[in-house]
Simulated assay, not measured.
Amino acid sequence: MLKILNDSDLHHLSEYSFERRFDERGAIEWMQENWWHSFVFSVLYAALVFGGQHYMKARPKLDLRLPLVIWSLSLALFSIIGAVRTGSYMLHILSSSGFRRSICDQSFYNGPVSKFWAYAFVLSKAPELGDTAFVVLRKQKLLFLHWYHHITVLLYSWYSYKDMVAGGGWFMTMNYTVHALMYSYYAARAAGLRVPRPFAVVITSAQIAQMVMGVTVSSLVYRWMQQGDCPSRVDNITWATLMYLSYLLLFSNFFYQSYLRQNSKAKTQ
């Protein structure tokens, strides 16, 4: 059995005052009562996205360069800070208590530093739906991967946070890190900066690695849950595994279509 971490185990992690004052119990209770609103957001999102595409068919695309720069830069800064804060917490757990505890312990949801950023993470999945507005209004190609990913991450994040399931620390820290890279790239591109193509390859590769790790963590949670170490439920692990496997297939296909297939076409021309 794993010993549950307490505040004394984490006393030397530096906290900002807003992190220390954050009421994680109230946040968890609110999510337990209101997590189903994620379905409402998802339905409204889908209606606005596909309704918006229909509306824009007969209208010229909008430029929106400055709003896109501000939007992407804001999410990049949020993700960078989130990645640093949650990453420092996870590194401490890994170095002091090991890999198994970093997956199975629930302290990520209520520990110093991480408790605020865990809640900020799940809440951020609602405003992040706004990404798609730029795709629709600029009349860009809307990939199934794009809107499917937004909806399922929102649903799963809110569904899981309320139960403080094992593995959350890994899921959130990985997502913060990948989004820090991704939104920084989007901001640079929107600002008109020339970003080397390999950077885009690195981002997609990081996304694929995230999905592989997501499947791995879900499998380990299931294995260790049988031994009483990992607090979770079979239904949650099932949804997490299906979600990450679907992402793995979709991102791998995107990688092939965007980088490998294009390179092979260029060589034959």
Rank of each mutant, 00 (worst) to 15 (best):
L2F: 11
I4Q: 14
I4K: 14
I4F: 09
L5D: 10
D9C: 11
D9H: 13
H12W: 05
Y16W: 05
S17V: 03
R21M: 01
F22R: 04
E24D: 15
G26W: 02
G26N: 13
I28W: 04
W30F: 15
M31N: 15
M31T: 14
W36R: 10
F41A: 14
V43M: 08
L44D: 05
L44N: 06
L48N: 07
L48T: 12
G51Q: 04
G52D: 11
K57S: 04
A58W: 00
R59C: 00
D63G: 06
L68P: 01
S72L: 00
L73V: 00
S74T: 14
A76M: 10
I80C: 05
G82C: 06
R85W: 09
H92L: 08
L94C: 05
L94F: 12
S95V: 00
S96L: 01
S97T: 07
G98L: 12
R100F: 11
I103A: 06
I103G: 08
I103F: 01
C104R: 04
F108C: 03
P112K: 10
S114T: 06
K115N: 09
S124W: 02
S124P: 00
G130V: 05
G130L: 12
D131P: 04
A133D: 02
K141I: 08
K141A: 10
L142N: 04
H146E: 06
W147T: 06
H149A: 03
T152D: 01
L154A: 12
S160Y: 11
K162W: 02
D163A: 07
A166Q: 01
A166P: 07
T173N: 12
M174I: 14
M174W: 05
L181W: 07
L181Y: 08
M182P: 04
M182F: 09
A187I: 10
A190I: 05
G192M: 08
L193A: 11
P196Y: 05
A200L: 08
A200T: 09
V202K: 08
V202A: 15
M211T: 07
G214F: 04
V217S: 09
M225V: 01
Q226F: 04
G228A: 12
D235C: 12
N236E: 11
T238H: 13
W239V: 15
T241H: 13
L245W: 08
Y247P: 03
S252G: 11
N253C: 03
F254S: 11
F255M: 14
Q257A: 13
L260C: 08
R261E: 07
